[in-house]
Design a protein around this nucleic acid. Structure first.
Lengths: 339, 339
DNA sequence: AATACGCGATGAAACGTTTCCAAGTCTAAA
DNA sequence: TTTAGACTTGGAAACGTTTCATCGCGTATT
């Protein structure tokens, strides 16, 4: 039961090592009888091929790399979890790395992965001025934050944003503000476009009002405070945030300003992180199909799935989850509020 | 600049491959002059040793495995993030795996890691009836959920719980309830013990009241509802939850029952996940020193740190973060509350 | 009946390192 | 001056697989 090699198996089964190798790799040209015998011996000896020796010769590692900006963002955590699951289902293992949104670190991580000879890389590129990544030759797929000239899979951010703003408009809201993501971030721009798309159709009654902010909670809170700190009859009655974290920050800002949600203000987020459904009030949000996105990314990497041509990224439709943080606008407050 | 091997380096530098290898591994017996020359050539050629070939021969992989129940729990996400950071600082990469709290899957993951010949494993064992893990021979260290006969590093759960309950008692609370973690979970039991330790010192005025519940939000909510749904003068005035997620669930339960926090009820959580500081009201909680715990785990694995003997796990002190969800008990409500 | 062919299996080379052993060189001690 | 010893370096074996070029054998084709 101790460390047995392919040689031991071959000897015990009375065949050549090459033959054992072939049954190991499911090569067709081997008799059913021999295959059975070898497999029996493998079982009996508890033999496990050494992945290093195997990879050294064959140039395939059954390893895939995942690089994300950080794991603090629950959205990325979900992505990693699903991706790991999918990779495991395909018999691969995952090397996990964090770039901390620093493009120098990111480049280093990619180099390490290339050195490890992973079979593919999934990356959520760091934000900021994207220089082109340069992981030479091996399959790489971007997720969420798409980049020109690289295959990518993501949610349909623009369509998702439209879903949210259309919903708010349909509820009767006209002064709808938007907390956009950081300028220069692709998903941020797309979501902002979706917002603007809908606002354009409303242009007789209302005009767009938005500010840029990072995707995190604190930035959302600051932006929310900025947008909401004005006389009641000028204040937006609805607010579309580009991330759930921002939206939660807004909720906090509204609370601190004594603004009731959803009576005086509707808030809609984006992402659909688990947390969005846990807070009070439960957050109405655009949920991204993370599971499908992760599965698609893995399948594409592993070649089990035909990708659309480069430049035409795969988009996945989002769904709107209507919960407690949104309602029709009231000109009068819903009830007497406490101090 | 393309794929150059150690042979190319040797040839270009006019030395034997063995010498290059020695330079690579910082072996002492090589002249400064030769070392410099070889290093120059390595630089020039952009040579990177093939990790597979290297590992095959040397039996060290510079890979460490991390197995956690899931990544949805922000507490684990934080652990993974810090551990990856620490591993990277030590020149190692991380293979990430999820056990989904299923001991069969967990065993499978461990076997895979053993097969990959990782240099060490960090694991947060799945909950439930722990059969002993059996990853034969390679360094393994448990984190958070300690297990008999395995080295582990964790926060001082019991001490941390005492901190929280002492604080509540100091505030004047006497009817202090506890949402314990799942029965059988080591950290859960420890935290419950901490709670009981303090309650014992109060035994003339009050007696312990606790229920078991899973660590997640929904279980916390259910448990909270159970504990709080009773006449006001019998209802606990303070609640210590064994996780932040449970505590947040309690906050929700309190809100649904029309109970004001912190005026009518103080809530204290455990873990110190980032989220605890984002919700309204900000959660008073016992924060675990995740960074230090992760660093210690990695350092121990890599032998850079002497572990206490097995059976005497390393404990790290927690800190209490006093925030908005706790206050002294009032016999009368703080203000007129809204419906 | 003889030749060609396809299939299953063999044995050895190859992958890119590390490590062991021996050989060579230089310094210090006798 | 000779010799022992320490230190560098070279050369080759070894690590555990995959893959490639053969080879033998039975079957189909002529």
């Amino acid at each position: 039961m101790s460390k047995s090699g392919i040689k031991d198996v071959a000897e015990r089964a009375g065949v050549a090592v090459g033959t054992v190798s072939r049954v190991l790799n499911g090569h067709p040209s081997v008799t059913a009888e021999v295959r059975a015998r070898v497999k029996a011996v493998i079982q009996e000896l508890g033999y496990r091929p050494d992945p290093f020796a195997r990879s050294m010769r064959s140039k395939i590692s059954r390893l895939i790399g995942i690089v994300i900006p950080n794991l603090t963002n629950p959205f990325f955590a979900e992505l990693v979890q699903y991706a790991e699951r999918a990779a495991t289902d395909h018999g691969h293992n995952v090397i996990f790395m964090t770039s901390f949104d620093d493009s120098a670190k990111e480049a280093d991580r990619l180099a390490q992965l290339a050195g490890r000879k992973v079979d593919g890389i999934i990356i959520v590129p760091s934000d900021g001025p994207h220089p082109i990544k340069a992981p030479t030759g091996l399959p790489l797929i971007t997720v969420d934050r798409l980049i020109a000239d690289h295959p990518g899979v993501a949610a349909d951010h623009r369509g998702g944003a439209r879903l949210a703003v259309d919903y708010l408009a349909g509820l009767g809201h006209r002064r709808i503000a938007c907390i956009a993501g950081p300028a220069g971030s692709r998903p941020a721009e797309d979501r902002l476009q979706g917002y603007l798309d809908v606002m354009k159709t409303l242009r007789n009654d209302s005009e767009p009002l938005f500010v840029h902010a990072a995707f995190d909670f604190e930035s959302g809170r600051a932006a929310g405070t900025h947008l909401l700190a004005r006389p009641r009859d000028e204040r937006p009655t609805a607010l579309f945030a580009s991330s759930d974290q921002q939206a939660i920050g807004c909720l906090r800002a509204a609370r601190d300003l004594g603004i009731q949600v959803p009576a005086e203000l509707s808030v809609v987020g984006f992402d659909g992180i688990p947390l969005s459904n846990l807070i009070a009030p439960r957050l109405t949000t655009v949920v991204q199909p993370m599971r499908e996105i992760a599965d698609a990314a893995i399948s594409s990497l592993l070649g089990r799935r035909t990708m659309p041509p480069v430049g035409t990224p795969d988009l996945f439709q989002c769904e709107l989850a209507v919960r407690e943080s949104s309602a029709a606008p009231f000109s009068e407050p819903a009830a007497v509020s406490s101090v």
